[in-house]
């Protein structure tokens, strides 16, 4: 996977989630995935692209 970051979903609001990446948080679009709080996702450029298996 050529994406940049792996983070943990800590909040979901509609089609967006707050993802904890290291010591930072980032808001990303989650339209492409079914995610739940606690899931780990690969993110890049404001998008959650794939769940971490």
């Amino acid at each position: 996977m050529c994406v940049t970051s792996q983070g943990k979903v800590i909040k979901i609001d509609g089609n967006r989630a707050i993802v904890e990446i290291g010591d930072k948080v980032e808001e990303v679009r989650i339209d492409l995935l079914k995610v739940s709080i606690g899931d780990r996702v690969y993110c890049t450029s404001g998008m959650a692209v794939e769940k971490v298996e």
Binding site: M1, C2, V3, R29, D31, L32, T44, S45, M47, V49, E50
Partner: peptide, 13 residues
């Protein structure tokens, strides 16, 4: 091309 595919998918949505 995961990033391009994701970006295009979101634009489509």
């Amino acid at each position: 091309p995961a990033v391009a595919f994701a970006a295009c998918s979101l634009i489509a949505i």
